[in-house]
């Protein structure tokens, strides 16, 4: 299998790339939802981002990606206690997946052949400390999406069934993608994604040509292409890592909080999740850019992706919610 397409080589789609970088800086922002046409680089970006991030240290062979032995909920199954480096996990959640595969279940194989009750960790365990990617999240069954969002928010997976009782950490960034023409996501679910971005096929010919050119170079002359972009990717990785360290020290004073609240009130977004996410995203952006404090410019940049999916739908407004948010931003942050 070849290396994923380099993140920095993705042409355009700045909103999507920014949103993904922000979740890498501050995973508590809580997931990204990417809605858009086919062939706009949604899945490419997710895989590229994970490849960009530094490897994680984990106990060898631990299906829960535990950082050290104490964390592993089921140390008996480990054959080796060495700490090894693993690439940041990206787990694909296939459509039509059952609840058992997601949360984990009784290991039928063990139960049948040895009569042992053994928990078989699911996809949530494998995604711990990494990314869980759901293509076509709008086609996934609602109860599975509910479950995923619950775990994504609490960071812990609890299984109580079939005489098993197990809890393990499952902290991951949820990335959902979908094509709105194929079905919409319930508003309750929309609200629980931290950021949302809309991607469209590039309209102008120049950009499209550049897309094709890079993709072709990636496929035909992979080595040279990867070498060409390695430097950029490394730079980006360093910025993300510094951003993570700086995150706690970035200040947000009272006036910024006030702006957040004003913006949300002006847009009539329900609940307080909007304000919180907006603030977190702005802070992550400030940290990523090396600023000491959150400014209005940061708010302005992240507001569309943090708020556009929290608005009540106005069917007559053809401009779409992103434009509405931008309009409100102009008014409030004028």
């Amino acid at each position: 299998m070849t290396q994923p397409f380099p993140f920095s080589a993705i042409v355009g789609q700045d909103d999507m790339k920014r949103a993904m970088i922000l979740t890498a800086v501050d995973p508590t922002i809580g997931g990204v939802l990417v809605f858009g046409d086919r062939g706009t680089g949604k899945s490419t970006a997710v895989r590229a981002l994970a490849a960009l991030l530094p490897p994680i240290k984990a106990v060898k062979g631990c299906p829960y990606n535990s950082e050290d032995l104490h964390e592993c909920p089921d140390p008996e199954i480990l054959e080796d206690t060495k700490i090894v480096e693993k690439p940041t996990p990206v787990v694909d959640l296939p459509l039509g997946v059952t609840e058992d595969r997601v949360v984990g279940a009784l290991d039928i194989e063990q139960a049948l052949t040895q009569g042992k009750k053994q928990f078989e960790p699911g996809l949530l365990a494998r995604a711990h400390r990494g990314y869980l990617y759901i293509d076509e999240v709008n086609l996934l069954e609602d109860h599975v999406v509910d479950l995923l969002l619950d775990v994504a928010v609490s960071g812990e997976n609890v299984v109580e069934r079939e005489g098993l009782s197990i809890r393990h950490a499952a902290k991951f960034v949820l990335v959902g993608s979908g094509n709105p023409e194929e079905g919409e996501l319930r508003p309750q679910l929309l609200d629980r994604f931290g950021l949302s971005v809309e991607v469209t096929s590039p309209e102008d010919i120049k950009t499209r040509i550049e897309v094709i050119r890079r993709r072709d170079a990636y496929e035909t002359d992979n080595k040279a292409f990867m070498r060409r972009w390695r430097g950029e990717d490394t730079k980006l990785r360093k910025r993300i890592l510094t951003g993570r360290e700086r995150l706690a020290s970035v200040k947000a004073d009272g006036s910024i909080l006030e702006e957040c609240a004003k913006l949300c009130i002006a847009l009539g977004s329900d609940g307080l999740r909007g304000e919180l996410t907006l603030l977190r995203a702005a802070r992550a952006l400030a940290a990523f850019e090396g600023a000491d404090a959150v400014t209005r410019d940061h708010l302005r940049l992240v507001a569309p992706s943090a708020l556009s999916h929290r608005l009540r739908r106005d069917p007559l407004d053809e401009a779409g919610s992103t434009t509405r948010v931008k309009r409100a931003v102009e008014e409030v942050l004028a």
Partner: peptide, 29 residues
Amino acid sequence: IPAEMITDTTTVAARLGIADPRAALFTLR
């Protein structure tokens, strides 16, 4: 694959209303 062919193919695809960049890639390959 010469650069101008990439340009040509992408432009033709766009004028036929094909949004998916895969189509142009497939043509070139």
